[in-house]
Design a protein around this nucleic acid. Structure first.
Lengths: 357, 357
DNA sequence: AAGCTTCATTAACACGCGTTAATAGATTCT
DNA sequence: AGAATCTATTAACGCGTGTTAATGAAGCTT
């Protein structure tokens, strides 16, 4: 069992005090260390392969140098979340640049308050990013009251916490309107999650408003709730198809759900977009490669992650950021899964498809 | 600025010493605390909403109570990794149960040794799980020498580190053999990543052996390297199609890559499996919903994650685990993307598809 | 009643580092 | 030359906890 190398050892080898070593390693501008001394310290550290102890550092400085990504859905659904890799990719980019660590945590329903407080009070992390919390999350108020640095990816009405989001309602409106402009009037909707998740209810709202604004009838029988994964989208579409209601288009709350729906449609012997046009949401990297290429609302996942991270770091520094709520733009990406309703009566076979991406 | 609540405060309120508080919070079996005293302490802690400081704890006990998931590919490709959510889901499950934290880190090529050492020596984490490191990762030797608790998801030849993996070569062999049994002899291959990743080279090896074992010709012109994402699979297939070589089946190193290839095939006006049969790898949750449903090798992602985590925790305790290398079984899941070669000459339109899942 | 054991609790030190106020040395100013 | 200023470095304390060896209390034996 080798003795651990401490700053004391480095100081000794370099012939300076521990304090100087600390100054060097923290690049303290305030206290000037002679370049020559600095060099000696660096070299001694290298020789001993010294790595400053993170816990001791955190304890002394009262900063964990870490942030947490907190997820509220349970691991089973996390596994089906095709959006997550993009988020993590974006986050990793920034935390690497800022030299801090990223913690990932899952909170059980009912345990929110405890988990949030325990994570921050225990100083495991300096701040947290909440990934799409639910409407009714009771922990949010606690976070707000205690003034804990926190950014929500998504929005929770009634909360004053900082957030980064897209305008789900408006984006859904655009998506559905696209279908309407193509001549569709019977448009089904499958949500991306249960409605206690704000993104799901917001997207549903946009769907409703688009129909209303276009003066179309709203048929509640054309609405289904899915549950994050493709399987639930598949089930929802089967239910729609067997319900007897007729429709010529679908607005899906996520690409993952849309994929399941597409499978159900094709399995039933119907064609896309010939019989049913589909618009998805998220524009995950795979959407362009689905068959047919899925028209979708591009959500700047990477940018959401990055902005959340930057915003959080501002809050952690105690700086008042320019804005505590950031809305990022979305864009409808048109591919082959949507077409004018007239075409639905034409023959669709042998059609060539061209990718837009 | 409120003063932080420490174990001292709790001790005071409960009328005991700080040591006793520590005993209570660590459920120390060795030192008996009277149930009555224990109760007093618990209540005092609750009243003050006391959360033990993680850094101080880590410093004093020399355990971070955290493990790290270390990824070697860069954020851009992490974003396209549909396998990741399953891994994270499985990991979260276990670490939650064991009451430890999960850190996620990305290491730059060239920085491996430094990053690994810094993470463990600095005691940010007690152990690490390396997600599919590359063949030539120089940091692995350092980890081995220092005896740092570490589990590899995947395999690196020449390393004695513990690992959890599937038999990539054998599984690929089975997958390709499936195509051969269906009568295919001209089978293309697109790897799931560059060959410096061991899973990619192992799967390619299985492909080669299957052809050899069946006495078929090996045509190097039918092999392409992809790069994790669907886009690279798409590009690879375009390259295959325009190369002039003819083939009636494809073995893709991952479902994500397979999806890109499928898009390229369909875009070229060819049908699956009519003109080209496809077998993927991973069996990600979406594979069943692709069009057509993708025949794939099921990799027990969740189980890999769980076993890795358990194994790592054994190593962290210093226990000698039953086995330091775990191989998990795979299974070929047959769906609609593969068929006998004879069918390729029949008319494929209007075919109904049935899902197996 | 003195000695021994068991049970419950505690005082005191250690963990490795950040940070402030103080010190010694070098330089400039009057 | 002496005082004042600046530069480079350090001694000493504190961060909040885990842990060991020691202490005291209580019960039991002889």
């Amino acid at each position: 069992m080798e003795k651990r190398v401490t700053s004391h050892d480095v100081a000794e080898l370099a012939g300076v005090s521990r304090t100087t070593v600390s100054f060097v390693f923290n690049d303290d501008k305030q206290y000037f260390v002679r370049p020559e001394t600095r060099q000696k310290v660096r070299e001694a550290a290298r020789k001993l392969s010294y790595y400053p102890n993170a816990s001791a550092r955190a304890l002394a400085s009262n900063q964990a140098k870490a942030i947490g990504l907190i997820m509220t859905r349970d691991p089973h659904y996390i596994a089906a979340d095709n959006f997550l890799p993009q988020i993590i990719g974006g986050l990793l980019d920034v935390v690497k640049e800022k030299q801090i660590s990223l913690l990932i945590e899952w909170v059980e329903p009912g345990e929110q308050t405890h988990t949030y407080l325990s994570l921050t009070q225990a100083k495991h992390i300096d701040g947290m990013i909440l990934l799409t919390p639910r409407f009714d999350d009771p922990g949010l108020k606690a976070l707000e009251q205690l003034g804990i640095p926190c950014v929500i990816m998504g929005q929770v009405p009634g909360s004053n916490l900082a957030f980064v989001d897209i305008d789900n309602c408006a984006a859904a409106h655009v998506a559905v309107n696209h279908l309407i402009e193509l001549g569709h009037s019977r448009i089904a909707c499958i949500t991306n999650a249960r409605l206690s998740y704000s993104s799901a209810s917001q997207r549903l709202l946009g769907y409703r408003q688009a129909l209303v604004d276009a003066g179309l009838d709203m048929d509640e029988k054309l609405i289904r709730e899915a549950d994050f994964d493709s399987a639930s989208g598949y089930t929802a579409m089967r239910s729609l198809l067997s319900s007897g209601s007729n429709f010529t288009a679908l607005f899906a709350g996520s690409d993952t759900v849309a994929l399941g729906a597409m499978a159900a449609i094709q399995e039933a012997g119907l064609t896309i977009p010939g019989d049913i046009s589909i618009v998805g949401f998220d524009d995950i990297p795979e959407a362009a490669f689905y068959y047919p290429g899925l028209t979708s609302v591009r959500v700047p996942a990477n940018e959401i992650a990055r902005q959340s991270c930057y915003l959080l770091m501002h809050l952690m520094k105690g700086e008042a950021p320019a804005s505590t709520s950031i809305m990022l733009p979305t864009e409808l990406i048109s591919r082959q899964s949507t077409c004018e309703i007239e075409r639905s009566h034409k023959h669709q076979q042998g059609e060539k498809f061209v990718h837009f991406t």
